[in-house]
């Protein structure tokens, strides 16, 4: 016997996605951010981080369907892997994209203004989150979300 509250019932009607897609994206993101770290401070690092910022922007603001790494995954990787074994809710990975976007924008602004130390910290933080996602399937932003809501928020639904 299971009782779901109204919000959870809404979850059931959401279109699920292949869980391997965001994981593949996290691997590419990890490589991009690692390459950015190794080239700071240089024009190459600005170009790399700009591309990654655009990727995060599309993934979070437009949606996972528009996320370039996801497009690469669906076009070139998924056909080789076959049917998905694990489906997941697209909201956690999309939320992760917005957390990544915040750090990437901060890093990019820091690079453009010559604040190299800030750039190292911001790109390093984004790399930590992407690497945890790629290597351990762990969503750092998702974990921080409830803590953030506990500190900042009141209950969004009055019962």
């Amino acid at each position: 016997m299971t009782t779901l509250d109204s919000r959870s019932q809404a979850v059931l009607s959401i279109q699920l996605i292949d869980a391997r897609g965001p994981r593949f994206g996290a691997i590419l993101t990890t490589l991009m951010l690692a390459a950015t770290l190794l080239t700071i401070p240089s024009t190459i690092s600005i170009i790399l981080l700009s591309i990654q910022t655009l990727v995060f922007g599309l993934g979070s603001l437009v949606g996972l369907a528009a996320q370039p790494y996801g497009v690469i995954y669906r076009r070139f990787v998924q056909p080789k892997l076959g049917k998905p074994t694990d489906l997941e809710d697209p909201r956690p990975p999309r939320f992760a994209q917005s957390v990544g976007l915040m750090f990437a924008v901060l890093g990019l602004v820091a690079l453009l203004t010559g604040a190299t130390t800030v750039a190292f910290v911001a790109v390093g933080a984004a790399l930590a989150a992407a690497f945890l996602n790629a290597a351990f399937n762990f969503c750092l932003g998702c974990e921080m979300y409830l803590i953030g809501r506990r500190i900042l928020g009141r209950s969004s639904v009055s019962v």
Partner: peptide
């Protein structure tokens, strides 16, 4: 579903932040 007398209740943490704080639920 397997064990009689056992109920499963799912609670949306965001909608019940008071309960979340009272039980010290962090994730």
């Amino acid at each position: 579903g397997m064990i009689p007398g056992v109920a499963h209740v799912e609670i949306d943490a965001e909608a019940h932040l008071d309960l979340v704080r009272r039980l010290d639920i962090r994730r």
